[in-house]
Simulated assay, not measured.
Amino acid sequence: MAPYLIQPDAPTTESRRLPLYDAGSVEVPFGILGMSEVMDRDTFWEEHSHPTHELLWNDRGASWAMVGQRIWTITPLTGLWVPAGVRHSGWAPSGTWHRAAQFDLRMLRLSEEPVAVDVAPLLRLLLDRLQGEGLSGSSRGLTERMIADVMAPAEHELTLRIPDRPLLAPIVDAVRADPADATTLEQWAGRLGVSTRTVTRAFLASTGLGFGRWVAAARMHHAIALIAHDVETEEVAERVGFGSSSAFITAFRRVTGTTPGRFRSS
Rank of each mutant, 00 (worst) to 15 (best):
G212A: 12
G212P: 07
R213V: 09
R213F: 10
R213Y: 08
R213G: 07
W214I: 00
W214K: 01
W214F: 04
W214R: 01
V215S: 03
V215F: 01
V215H: 02
V215I: 15
V215W: 00
A216E: 15
A216I: 03
A216Q: 14
A216G: 13
A216F: 09
A217W: 05
A217M: 08
A217S: 14
A217K: 14
A218T: 02
A218W: 03
A218V: 04
R219M: 06
M220W: 06
M220L: 11
M220D: 04
M220A: 03
H221W: 03
H221Q: 13
H221M: 08
H221F: 03
H221L: 08
H222S: 11
H222K: 07
H222E: 07
A223V: 02
A223E: 06
I224R: 05
I224D: 04
A225S: 11
A225T: 14
A225C: 08
A225F: 15
L226K: 06
L226E: 10
L226I: 09
L226M: 12
I227K: 06
I227T: 10
I227C: 07
I227H: 04
I227R: 12
A228E: 13
A228R: 14
A228I: 07
A228G: 15
A228D: 14
H229I: 05
H229R: 15
H229L: 08
H229P: 00
H229K: 14
H229Y: 06
H229G: 08
H229E: 13
D230T: 15
D230P: 00
D230S: 14
V231E: 08
V231C: 05
V231S: 05
E232Q: 14
E232N: 09
E232P: 02
E232A: 13
T233K: 03
T233V: 14
T233W: 08
E234K: 14
E234D: 13
E234G: 09
E234W: 11
E234H: 14
E234T: 08
E235I: 04
E235V: 11
V236I: 06
V236F: 02
V236W: 02
V236K: 01
V236A: 03
V236H: 04
V236E: 03
A237G: 06
A237Q: 02
A237H: 00
E238A: 15
E238R: 15
R239C: 02
R239Y: 00
R239L: 10
V240N: 10
V240G: 08
V240P: 05
V240I: 14
V240M: 07
V240A: 07
G241M: 09
G241I: 08
G241T: 09
G241N: 13
G241C: 10
